[in-house]
Structures are given as structure tokens and as C-alpha cells.
Amino acid sequence: MGGPIPILKVGPNLLTTIHVELTDSIAEVFQQDVLRAIERTGAGGLVIDISVLEEVDTYVARVLADTGRMAALMGTRSVLVGMRPEVAATLVRMGYGMEGVETALDVDRGIARLASLKENR
């Protein structure tokens, strides 16, 4: 766990709030940290809270989407929560809709989404 972004175990899930500006290298370290945390805890779900991020470019968006896909390979469902309106509009205008990534309005609803995904499995 080398990066500046803490990853917490909350109940059966991992919760992480990205509270710093994501540079390319921080994003990569974050991805590794998340995957190691999944490996260590065997968490069933992962909630990534990006409500603090004022901009997300396609590189960071891809790291976030890939992290979710990698987690899925390890059997962990993930939800991206709290994306700001400006970030959503910008990504869509660039043609990057992050298809296949689960989303929710906030952390609570993200956790609820994970629970419903588990039921429907």
C-alpha cells in the first residue's frame, strides 16, 4: 500500500475516496493498491468515490474503468460514485461514456447497488 489514497474495508466491501488530484503515476499506484487490497481482503465489492475530482481526462477514466474490470476478474463488483456533472459532460463530449462501468450518485447508493448486483447474480 504505497499510494496516498486510503482504501478502507467497510463491511463486506472496500471503500476508497479519491481525495487528491490524480496524476498519472498516482493513478497507477492507486490501481495496484486497490487490486492488492482485494487480494488481501477478498472483499465482495468495491466503491470508488470520485466526488472530489474536478476533472477526469480519458487517461484517468481508463485507469478507473480498467481497475473495475480487473477487480471483476478477481470476482469483485465495483461501482464508481459521485461523479460531478462537469466531469460527466466532458467525458461524454469526448466520446468516452465508460460503458460497462457501474455508477451511483453517492457512496450509500453505491453500496446499495453492490448489494442488488449480488442478489441478481
Binding site: 498519472d24 474536478e54 476533472e55 477526469v56 481526462d57 480519458t58 487517461y59 460531478r84 456533472p85 462537469e86 466531469v87 459532460a89 466532458t90 463530449r93 469526448m94
Partner: peptide
């Protein structure tokens, strides 16, 4: 971002410019 905000860009225009800058700088 700082220049866009000081020139009265709204939050959507600011995010668009900043993100474009990020892509091109990369």
C-alpha cells in the same frame, strides 16, 4: 483552470478546457 475561472468561464467550460489541456499536455 486558474485562468479560465478568473475569466468567468462557467464550471462546464472550465472543466472542458482543463481536460483538453490535460489530454494535450499528456
Amino acid at each position: 483552470r486558474a485562468l479560465a475561472q478568473s475569466r468567468g468561464f462557467d464550471s462546464f467550460a472550465t472543466a472542458a478546457l482543463t481536460t483538453a489541456a490535460s489530454e494535450l499536455a499528456r
